[in-house]
């Protein structure tokens, strides 16, 4: 099973993602955070300390861009700083998951080495297939 966390301030969007991931039967547990600060406080509360869920594969992190407080990019930067102190070599697979198809947002995502994919909402079964292929490419074959 692949653990997953959705960071999004819109409840309905988190619900949709949870339904899509659960439907594939390959993601569990699916955690949620309503903004960047909550995510950091919950899973990386201080340098060197991680409570990120562990499973058969690295945790999937789906992050929205436009959120109150820290936006998605700012959250990922801070997350990167905190992850440096953590022992895991490859604890997360980070994907942007947003309603913005603005070129400047896409460009910024491309420049951030932690982000490996950029999805435009809404989450679909096809997007879930893509995520699974990305995991397969990393050597995590789903059965």
């Amino acid at each position: 099973m692949i653990p997953a966390i959705v960071v999004d301030d819109v409840l309905a969007d988190r619900y949709i993602v949870r339904r899509r991931l659960t439907k594939s039967g390959l993601f569990c547990p699916v955690g949620e955070a309503q903004d960047g600060t909550t995510f950091l406080d919950t899973y990386l509360p201080q340098p060197g300390l991680s409570t990120l869920p562990e499973g058969d594969a690295p945790c999937l992190l789906l992050v929205d861009i436009n959120m109150p407080g820290l936006n998605g990019f700012e959250m990922i930067e801070e997350m990167g700083r905190r992850l440096r102190e953590v022992a895991h070599p490859d604890p997360l697979v980070v994907m942007m998951f947003t309603s913005s198809d603005n070129p400047s947002d896409k460009a910024r995502a491309a420049q951030q080495p932690l982000i490996c994919r950029y999805f435009v909402k809404p989450m679909t079964d096809a997007a879930v297939m893509q995520i699974l292929e990305d995991y397969a490419a990393r050597g995590y074959q789903h059965s």
């Binding site: 309905a12 436009n66 809404p122």
Partner: peptide, 21 residues
């Protein structure tokens, strides 16, 4: 234009996703 396109579109994506479900 940027804000309007993004912030007015976001709820529509949500609605589409919910209706698919």
């Amino acid at each position: 234009a940027y804000s309007a396109s993004h912030d007015l579109k976001a709820p529509l994506s949500t609605i589409a996703g919910l209706l698919e479900l």
